[in-house]
Each structure stands twice: as C-alpha cells, then as structure tokens.
Design a binder for these strands. Structure first.
Lengths: 225, 225
DNA sequence: GCCTTTCTATGAAGTACTTCACACAACGGC
DNA sequence: GCCGTTGTGTGAAGTACTTCATAGAAAGGC
C-alpha cells in the first residue's frame, strides 16, 4: 500500500497534461494573493473555481459534527485547491485557508470547460488522475478502519516526508509541523500523537523538535506500516 | 455519506451517459456467468476490464493487514465492478466474488478507450461522476474519523435502506443482510453491531430478524446521524 | 426427524484510545 | 528582561470499543 505514497503528491489534478495545454489553461487564470490566515473559500459556498497554488501553502479544513475545525490536509506549490468543483459544480466540501502568504492562480469553471472542450485528449489524463485519487482515498479509508495508531502515524510520517523530500536517498527530512496539526489531520488526540512520536523517538526512528519532526529511519517506519 | 455503499449504488460510473452511448458500449462486451462463490477477479491482478452486473450480486473484499477478508461493499444489478481499472490500468485494489449466481457484461480496456475516443462528450459525464465519488469517499473518511459507532451505524442503515427503497415515503424497508456483514463493512466487530442494533430496537427505531434489519423510524436515525 | 451450521444475543475482561489536569520549555512582543 | 502565548511531555481516570466465552434459536442437509 505505502509504495503508492509517492503518487499522492505528484499526481495533482493536472500533472499528466502536456505543458502546452497547461499553459493555455493558466493563461486564462487570474492571480490572487492572500496573507497568512486569509480565507480562500468557505465550506458550503457554491464552488465554481479552481485555485492552483503558485506560492505558499493552503490549509483545508472541515467542520466536525461537534463544531470543531479539523484540518484535512495541507496543499503546497503546484497543487490544486477546490478542483472537484470544476468537474461537478457542487458546493465546497471544505474551507481553504492560506496558512502562509500565498499566491494562487484562479481558473473559473466556465474557462475550464471551454478549455477542456478544445482538448478531448486532456479528458483522458484527467480521468486517469481522478481514478488514482479514488483509489488513494479508498485506501485511506481502509487504513483508518483497519490500522492502529502506530501504523497510521508511521504511514503519515512517511507520506509527509516523502512529499517534501522527493527521490532522495537516506537523507532525513525535517517536517515543519506541530503535533496538534498532525493529530487534527489524523483524527486522534494530540496527546496520543505525542506519546506515539516519543515512542518512535525512543526507538531512534524519528527525532523531535518544537514544531518539527525529522524521520531518521524511514525503513523502520515502513516495516511498521 | 457513509462509506462506499451508496456512492457506488446511486452513482455508477456510467449513469449519466445517454442511452445510445451506453448500448454502444454494451454491444462491445461479452456476457460471463458465475455461480455463487465464484471468483471474478483477485486483488493484485492486472486489471484491464470492467464488469457491469447484469444479474445477481457481487461482493467486493480486501485483505486486511492481518490477513482477514473485509467486505467493502456489495454491488447489484446495473452497477460497475472494477471500473477504475479502465481508467488507469492499475492492478485490482480488491477482489470480486459472486455472492449469488451472477451474470456480468465484460468490457475490455481497449474497447472502452476506443469507445471513449469516439465520444468526447462522454468524458465529461465520467469526470463528473468520478468527482462525486471522490467527494463521497472523502466524506466517508471524515465520518469514520469523527463519528462514533451509533451515528455511523444509523447512517449506514439509512444509506442501505435508501438505496433499496428509493424515493419512497415512510414505508419500512427490510434489509437482507447479516450483522456479521454489516460489521465487516464498517470495520467494527460483529458484537458491537449486534449490541447497537439491539439498542436501536429497544428505542423502536428498527426491528430485527435473522438475516434482516428493518428500519421503522428513519427520522430518529437521521437525527442521531 | 435429527444433526450441523449459521446467525443472533449477552456478559466479562482486556485494550486503545480519550479527556482532563498539570508542568515546563521555547519563542515573540514590547 | 519579563510575560503572555504556543507547543511539548506525562500521568490518572474514563470511555468505547475489542476479544473471548458461551448460549440458544433458526435454517438447511439428507
């Protein structure tokens, strides 16, 4: 399962499209800037645009039934925010908030559909990409139902570190993330994440700092997951 | 919302296509018959075909990390089995087993791609369908992480009964399903499902039989979920 | 009919998480 | 430099599930 992790990051919606098609799409977009903490869109709003992250980082949050904010994921440069809205025109299923100073390229649904109509080939690539995404989400669902916290945490650490440190050997990747954020993403308490991270640290698999986790033994984590 | 069940049920891959396009695709397929218990395909095999269920029922199972079979969902008449393989050509992410005598219409990846090439419009419909499926799975993921068993069970009961009893008023729908199957689908123990179902029964929200659950107060379940 | 298998039902003990309570360390503002 | 804020670390108690054990009732084979 975890060998698919690399796909997670390098398969944003448009990754498989030829460069020319991509820039044609980009040329129809407008650039928007956000300061850290700015709301990009809110859960439940009608969604008719896609944001490609040009610079910075975006936090995706949903409201839990109990009314607390739960961070689903973070999206960085080159990734797409709110892409599903382009395809099905449904309301936003989550809110997007700039977690740093961020620039996005906004493409509207209308522009996108015109662009797609002129490029039937692009639809194939999109179908393939979306299909991979369904697989990945299904897999996450199975993980959540079947795996315990240590395994899930190990997977998550690998996925996060793999993403930021692509195609490099054994060199350790320092993740800039708080334990509270990890807990929120995984749907467990901060205390549990803390205790498990410290257990990993005692084994020498990770090293911890204030607001950071560094994976030092990826193999051990992979074995666990 | 809960899990794969409903999404695959009311949003089969090809639901939004015009009738003519559908029958053009169907005409390229071959019909295959399976007896109850026959394996249709196995997890991990290369996937290059789609099965549309013409008659009968198919059980989708994955192997958990501990080696036990977990039923992900059941697919019935008109639904598609192994549809993702057509789009991305990846190995099967689950096994499919005929849970009754079943007939399927098999379409190969090659045939599908030729068919799709001749119908650029169909790609739009497929993109929309897949997009909805991603949303539903994401939602199921959030449910699993955030909701407790009573809520999830209530949702699941509604989703199952809604699927079999579409667009009808207050009339009770009798689900033909064992508690063990429900437990396997939801990733909890059979005993937990049993105890919770009996709690619902004591409230008068469902009535139980051997191999069946009947929702008698859908509103109460909805309030809980 | 009986016997085997399948399914439901339930209590007792164990486990993995949770919440709560608190301590302390690092950083930022001024 | 001090002080409020944010983040980490940890134990105690509680909760929601698990597994295990056991029982009985319904259905199917022959």
């Amino acid at each position: 399962m975890d060998q698919h992790q690399d796909l997670i990051r390098d398969v944003p919606l448009l990754a498989r499209l030829p460069e020319a098609d991509l820039s044609a799409l980009a040329s129809r977009g407008r650039v928007r800037s956000y300061r850290s903490g700015d709301l990009i869109f809110r859960e439940g709003e009608p969604g008719d645009s896609l944001h490609m992250v040009v610079e910075g980082q975006v936090r995706i949050v949903v409201l839990s039934p109990l009314g607390e904010e739960v961070t689903v994921t973070y999206l960085g440069q080159g990734e797409c925010v709110g892409d599903l809205a382009l395809l099905d025109g449904r309301p936003r299923s989550a809110s997007a908030i700039a977690s740093q100073a961020t620039k996005t390229l906004v493409v509207t649904r209308g522009d996108f559909r015109r662009w797609l109509r002129e490029r039937p080939q692009a639809a194939f690539a999109l179908l393939e990409t979306l299909s991979l995404r369904v697989r990945r989400t299904d897999e996450a669902l199975a993980d959540l139902a079947l795996l315990d916290l240590p395994s899930r945490l190990a997977k998550r650490l690998l996925s996060l570190s793999g993403a930021r440190q692509p195609a490099k050997g054994g060199s350790p990747a320092k993740l800039r993330i708080t334990q509270a954020e990890m807990a929120s993403m995984m749907g467990v308490s901060r205390e549990s994440v803390n205790k498990q991270l410290n257990a990993f640290a005692r084994e020498g698999w990770v090293s911890l700092g204030r607001g950071s986790v560094t994976v030092t033994d990826a193999k051990a984590l992979r074995d666990l997951a």
